[in-house]
Write a protein that binds this DNA or RNA. Sequence first.
DNA 1: CATTACCTGCAA
DNA 2: TTGCAGGTAATG
Length: 319
Amino acid sequence: MPELPEVETTRRHLAEHLPGARVAAVALLDPRALLRPDPATFTRRLVGATILAVERRAKYLIMPLRRAEPPSLAAPSNRPDFVGAGLVPARGRQAAAPGPDSRPEGRNGRVHPADDYLIVHRRMTGNLFLRAPGAPPDDHTVAVLTLDDGRELRFCDLRRFAKLWLADAAEVAALDRALGPEPLARGFTAARLAAALRGRRGLLKPLLLNQNLVAGLGNIYVDEALFAARLHPTRTADTLTDTDVRRLHRAIRAVLAQGIRNEGTSFRDYRGAVGQPGRNQMMVEVFRRDGQPCPRCRTVILKTRVGGRGTHYCPRCQR
DNA sequence: CATTACCTGCAA
DNA sequence: TTGCAGGTAATG
């Protein structure tokens, strides 16, 4: 499934090509993909809406929308210039802050002001494709937003766990509060990681998969981060020294940043917004490399089950 | 805390 | 045929 680097790779592509586009039509091919509201309301609110931006929080893609102008001449808006005021700082923010961690997704609580938010979570096998007018169909398509220029934003999902829904600003804020820190944001320090782990006695691997502690890691990048930090997946959080936490902090950021640089990890189903696979599967050190030698010490990599998830590690390097 | 459910497809 | 797959919410 897409983890933080895969969602971010998709976000970057969509953010280049979607803002300003208007939704001309909505096709919900599998209603199970829609969490809320009901299909009729969902369609009514989306048709005519303008996509203002494409943002990310953890593994969630968030598209702020400006609703269609009501066709009536009467009833002037009760919040004039609300959206226009929100768009200006977005440009200023980019110009002022070129660093990789300065994008808005790292700022808890800061969301683009808008009427509605289209939220997508891809779970295990969901993909978002932006296709040219008349492009051949994609397998497992569950929903399509046709844009006013004929392009299609397609939501495809083999296993049909993925969800999309419309939210308001309060719900986006609640989601943001419920999630742990963005691991690539400047504010995510070793001290912050230590604070998240403090008082916890669980196994390292399930803790790192818990999105409430640190948001965005999944099975691939947890295994890779634990290898890079030389920590055993069943180490218990309360046994970590300060040095261990600092190594883990560095490792988390390094494996995620590498994943983004390589445009994601595609073992099977992940594809980017134009259908392209990532390259990071060539770079992984332990994930699905059981039976092969550890790149650091040549000991054979093992695969076990930890917290119900397949877990890959080097029994010699990781303690 | 661990297990189950949600789904479909593929490899063992 | 069984078990497993990059996630998460809902159960004991």
